[in-house]
Simulated assay, not measured.
Amino acid sequence: MTTPHNSAIKGNIAETVLLPGDPLRAKFIAENFLQDVEQFNAVRNMFGYTGTYNGKRVSVMGTGMGCASIGIYSYELIHMYGVKNLIRIGSCGAYDENLKLFDIVLAIGASTDTNFAYQYDLPGTFSATASWELLSNAKKIADENGIHTVVGNIVTSDVFYHDSPDDWKRWAKMGIVAAEMESYALYCNASRAGVNALTILTVSDSIARQSETTPEQREKGFKDMMKIALELA
């Protein structure tokens, strides 16, 4: 069975999948961290690979940017390919001035300005949260490897270039530590299906500090985040 967005057949993809937004980051991880790698997808250049890490089978696949994109890929991975653990490894913009470039955030929950959860016709506002199993194990792995992490709430936004550039300060007042564009949809899809999801983010830029990393650093330089995710897988 294939989908309009994934040429894999069932069995090509492991039960645990790492999900970077950038498909080139998926390629980098597959080529540098996995053994016995086989590529299962290149549709729309959204590269996907399966290999082994420390003897355990694991997959990695790009998701693109935004809730619409990761919503499609994560839904298909869960419902068409039987994936049980989805670990987003992405970049974020820091709202907390205590966060520095390359710091790592474990997202316990995702607020949002999107309408992704409207499809469920709920009688209120859905709070999208991570799997406690994945979150607690990720924190333990990070601590054991001496990798500093911040566990906090993030915001998933549909807008990258905001017309009101100071809106981030409102989120920061509510304790939101960072912003990105995918996790709310991932957490919703996982919650609805009863599977596990976690977002691990590296600070690629700081809105509070007005600093940023380069595109090459974002593709290849977030190795502590990759280590946590792979050990977790």
Rank of each mutant, 00 (worst) to 15 (best):
V58C: 08
V177K: 05
E97I: 10
G71L: 09
D121P: 01
K140I: 13
T156D: 03
K56H: 15
E133M: 08
D96M: 12
F160T: 13
S131R: 02
P165R: 12
C92R: 00
C92A: 15
R170M: 00
L135T: 10
D103F: 05
T63A: 11
R57Y: 06
N137K: 15
E97Q: 12
G62V: 05
I78L: 01
L99K: 02
K140D: 14
G124T: 03
Y81R: 04
T129K: 06
M80N: 15
D103M: 08
F102M: 12
R170C: 00
E144V: 02
A142L: 05
I70L: 13
I78R: 02
V83P: 01
S74P: 03
W132S: 11
I104G: 01
K169A: 06
T156W: 05
V150S: 02
C67G: 12
A142Q: 10
I108N: 15
S157Y: 02
D121K: 12
A178F: 00
V177M: 00
F116W: 11
Y118D: 15
G175C: 06
V105F: 08
E144Y: 09
T156L: 07
D167N: 14
Q119W: 08
L134W: 01
V60M: 11
I176H: 04
L135W: 00
L122K: 11
R57V: 00
A172L: 05
H79W: 04
N145A: 09
Y75C: 11
D158Q: 13
V159C: 15
A179G: 14
E133F: 05
Y120P: 00
Y75D: 12
S111T: 13
I154M: 13
S127T: 07
A138C: 06
L106E: 04
L86T: 03
S164D: 12
V60K: 09
S136G: 06
I154Y: 06
S59N: 12
A110F: 06
F116G: 00
E133W: 01
Y81S: 08
E76Q: 07
I104S: 03
G90C: 05
T63R: 03
T149A: 12
K173N: 14
D158F: 03
V83G: 11
G82A: 11
K56C: 05
P165I: 04
K56Y: 06
Y81W: 02
A68H: 01
A117I: 07
K140W: 03
N98K: 14
R57D: 10
E76N: 10
A117K: 05
P165D: 07
I72S: 05
K139G: 08
A179C: 15
T149L: 09
L99G: 05
G66V: 09
Q119V: 10
D103Q: 07
H79P: 01
W171Y: 14
Y120H: 13
E180R: 00
A107N: 06
Y118N: 14
L135K: 04
I147T: 04
I108P: 00
K100P: 00
N98Q: 15
A94T: 02
K84N: 09
D113R: 07
A172V: 03
A178S: 10
E133Q: 10
S127K: 03
V151M: 15
D121H: 13
S91G: 14
G93Y: 00
G66S: 07
W168Y: 14
T149N: 10
I70A: 07
L77R: 02
A110H: 02
T149Y: 09
D166I: 09
V58I: 11
Y81N: 01
V150M: 08
A138N: 07
V159H: 06
K173C: 08
T156E: 04
N98G: 10
T129S: 12
S69H: 09
